[in-house]
Structure formats: structure tokens, C-alpha cells
Design a protein around this nucleic acid. Sequence first.
RNA 1: CGGGGCGUAGCGCAGGGGUAGCGCGCCUGUCUUGGGAACAGGAUGUCGCAGGUUCAAAUCCUGUCGCCCCGACCA
Length: 579
Amino acid sequence: MRQSRYFIQTLREIPSEAEVVSHQLMLRASMIKKVAAGIYDYLPLGLKVIRKVENIIRENMNKAGAIELLMSVVQPAELWQSSGRWNHFGKELLRFKDRGNRDFCLGPTHEEVITDIVKSQVNSYKQMPVTLYQIQTKFRDEVRPRFGLMRGREFIMKDAYSFDIDDAGADVSYQKMYDAYKAIFTACGLAHKVVDADTGSIGGSFSHEFMVLADTGEDTIISCNKCEYSANVEKAVVVDSGEKENAALKDMEEVATPNKHTALEVAEFLGVDIIHVPKTMIIRCEGVVVDGREEDIYVACMVRGDHEVNLSKVKNVVKAKSAEFAEHYEVLDKTGCSIGSLGPCNMPLKVYVDNALKYLCNIVVGANKEGYHIKNVNLERDAKIEGYFDIRNAMPKDKCPHCNGEYQETKGIEVGHIFKLGTKYSESMGAKALDKNGKNIPIVMGCYGIGVGRTAASAIEQHYDEKGIVWPKAIAPFEVVVIPLNTNDDEVIAKSDEIYNGLLSLGVDVIIDDRNERAGVKFNDAELIGYPLRVSVGKKSLSEGRIEVVIRRTGEVIFLDLSNNLADKVKEILDTKVI
RNA sequence: CGGGGCGUAGCGCAGGGGUAGCGCGCCUGUCUUGGGAACAGGAUGUCGCAGGUUCAAAUCCUGUCGCCCCGACCA
């Protein structure tokens, strides 16, 4: 490729819309262009990176025995109604009507479509196991898209689905994807970690997330400092441990706490340790089965003043489809008291308490009366509670559930997520097959996703410097740039062309920056775009009988003496010294 | 959905009732050629959109749309 004829317009200044490094550099390097919030065009340079990521994924999926197909982007409402998700997926599902007033949506994921396909094509255990995948544009109408390709509304995703006749088979299929994912992110040159995760709106029995480690990541990873255990903070188990405080139980005492709302404010006002001032929060739990019917209920949850409630855990404890903090008006409506003075005593809602509170006595809680708290409360004595549960976020220093180590916290970007679905979709949608005994049973499923654009963006988050992107070789838009420094010098041009053509014939993905620009301009652009290897040919170095090769990542400079196999030598450096 | 900010040239920004500006980029020429050169000349705008006030609106008022950030998890 000749850069003078290619389509690259780099920017010197950072467009004001970009906040994070990957977004800034992708815009400056002319890789993407915004169309609307969370929707981007992939310019030629960006598309090259996307395609490389896709091909690495494809190669490893095929190697793992998965088979590629391509499903429709537009999906009819009926499919989503049959799984029950038409009503449960929420506003992220972009819905619309066709000219005949029929309901459709843009596919945010494809469990329904793939289950429908398999339902109509697979009848027997003999046709399984089978894992199908596609690489395709998805649309999710995110509440708040941000950070360029990191959280877009329209984005490219690889999604795969496995089908097995039994649980044991499904576990094997899951493990194959697990291994393939590790191979994929390793091949992309990304430092990553696999963590236990919550299944979220997809559902299923267990799941793992693949996290690229980067300080700018939106996800919090909890991991043990001694063993291999690591999990998303949403999922990380908190061990129930501690010793009951050994203090005499005092009598309850109502105290005025005017305008003190937060646990910290109340603790300071009363001169009490914040640990003894737990927070009581009202949570709306949707889709809870009560007397055989699904209902939305409200519950009160208590955690220690220095802890945070974990909604995923509450959702699981209450056995709800979703759990959200109640709005102010809901709290007032359900408890007769506003936020800031809530407590477990005489609470009209069911009260779920975090394990950590089991070990405290004489605590301070809201009086369910505006501006008042109650001192010296002891939950077993003074309140009616549902029991003690693990409903808080794990924190650094918490004990590991698997060894005697303790938790630590790191930030990560979720680039892949795999789920053991079980029979959730096959049962609701009636995807069954005959087993060896001739019995018709629901197929056991798994689903597996990779964010392609997010993978590319997180590669930048992990690999950049003050000059620009430092692409891992495997996903760089071009592996090598050849720069003739004096475009008016025939000898320089001839030598550059010779190396460029030589590399081309060796199968190297190479670009020659033949623009009539000064050296500084080309160097700066090369560094911004992040070509892993740069070959400079100048009048000066030719007169010294050599050319210069620079490795972007390390800055290492290698001089090659002039010979008729320079391309081979450059390729050798690329193969052996560039990662 | 709540709060804040911003919409003026491709990008970054200034201007703030009286004919639209600067830097970078872009075009032409001269010159230069190993780290974003210099000089000369030049092109580019429905000042987000719609109403209103005014002799006159990018500027003031009203509405609206778009974009960005923060929050929507700790009471």
C-alpha cells in the first residue's frame, strides 16, 4: 500500500468529544469517525485492525470445532416473545414496526434466533454436539454510550452458541470455548485475566468473563493474592466470618439526627464508629414468584456503614429477575419514610441483612421517622429480619473463600463473556432432541461472546505512549512502514521501493509512506498510527552504506548494512524481535 | 431519566447587537528535505435548527435538536 494513495488523515489535536486514550488515538489516527452517539464508521485503517481481530477469532473458533454462520440483524418480536425476553430485556432492545405494523427489533444478541434455527434443524443427539458462531453487527440502545468503541450502541460482536444433549457434553463444549478465548486474546497480544462472573440478563447457571487488564477499565476485578481465584466484584463471594462483639446489650434509645442522612454524617454526629451505623436501602425486585405468580416486590437491605450493597447478590437472594434501587417516591410510598432515616425496626417490608451485621451489637439505625435514629439496636432482639446473607460487594482485604489469602482489586475491560446457559432458552422455546433412549429432552446450551471493536480499543488502552498507539503486531493495521526520507532523491526512492516490494513478496503487510512530506511529519504519523516496525531510508544513511530499522514498542534502533536481501533481514527482525 | 457543559471552517478555539475571526490542516508557487520548515498568494462557513425582539441577531429572548461529561449503587 502506498500511503499517498491510501485514506489516512491524521489529526494533531485531540477532538474534544474523546475522553479516553483509545478513543482519542483512534480518532487522531484516522481509524474511526463518529456518526451519532455510540455509532461509528470504521475508516480503512480501523477496519484493517477490526478484520485482523476477526480473523484471529475465526481461526481459533474453527480450530475449536465451531462452525460459522450469519444470522439476521432484524428480528421479529414473536421470537423474543417466545423466550419471554420481549418484555424483560428493557429499553436496550431497539424496537420498531414495519409497514404492516408488525413488531421487530434490531438484534442485541442472538439466543432466540439461533435456538429457533437449531430447533428446526436438530432432532437427534446424533447431530450434537454442535457449536455455531457468527461475527456480526449488534445493536443495543445503551443508556449511556461512551468512550468510542468501548461502549457503543452499534458494535461488532462474535457470538457463539453450543448445543449438547446433556450437561456433561455442555461442560466439554464450554471448556473448548474457554480455551479458545484464552488463545484468542493471547494471540491478540493482550494481557488478560479470566474471572467468575454474574450471568446478568442473559441468564444461565455460571459464566466467566475475559478481562483485559487496564487502569481505565470500567469493571472491578477481585482476585486473591495467594491462589488463582478471581471474580468480577458483582460476583465475588464474601466469606461469612468474624467474632460476635462481646458487649452488654443496651436499651434502645431514639435520638434526633436533624439533617443527617448518610451513614457517615450520622456516625460523626453521634460520635459512633461508622461500622456501627448500617445503611438500610429499599430495593425494587422485579419478577419474583409469589404464590405461583410473578410480581414486583420491594425489600429492605442492610449492610454495614462502610460496605456497599451488591444488587446482583440481592437479586439472587430474593430470586428476582432484576433488582434496582427504589426511587425516592417509591421509598416514601412503601415505607412512609424518606431516604436517610430508614431502619429495620417496624419496617413494613421484608428485611435482608448482610452477614457482617451478625457480629455487631448496639448499632445505630434509622427510626423510620424523618430526622430520627435509634441507638443500641440489636437486630435479633429489636427487629424482624429474613436472615443474614452475602449481599455486599467484596472489598480489598476480605478473606479468600478458597485459601488463606486475601482479596485485592484491579481494573479491567470485559472483552469476552461465556455462559453456561443450561436449558433456559431451549425449554422456553421448545428446542428438544431425542436422546439415546428415544426420549425427547431440552437441548443444553452455552453462549459465548467477544466484543471485536472493544478488543481493538482495549489493545490501545493497554499499549500506547505519549506519541501514539503501540499496536501488538498481530492486530496492527500494517506490520511495517517503509519511509523514504528524501522523496526527491532517486536512489532513496529506488531503495525504498526495493525493500517495500521485497516485503510485499514475502507476504508482509507493509505500507510505504511515499508522501512528499518532511521526515518529522512521517515519523510522527507513523508513531501515532503505531506501526510495529519502521524502516527509514535516507540520503544520509545510504551514504553510510546502511538503512535504519526501529521497533516501535521498545524504540530499539537496528542498522542494516546495504545488501540485496534487505527485505529478508527486515522480515527476520519482524518475526523474531517484534511482538 | 436527573445534573452540568458545549454546538462558529476538516480539527482546536476566539468573538458577543452594525457585512465572520485566529492557529493547525487544505490548494498554488518558490524554497526546503533525518523529527510536525519558511515565504508569498488562495479556497472553505445556512455561527446546530425554528420562532421571536430589533432599522439591524452568530450575539438578546423562547423553544427545539444534537453532542460530551457526571450521576442514576450506599440513603
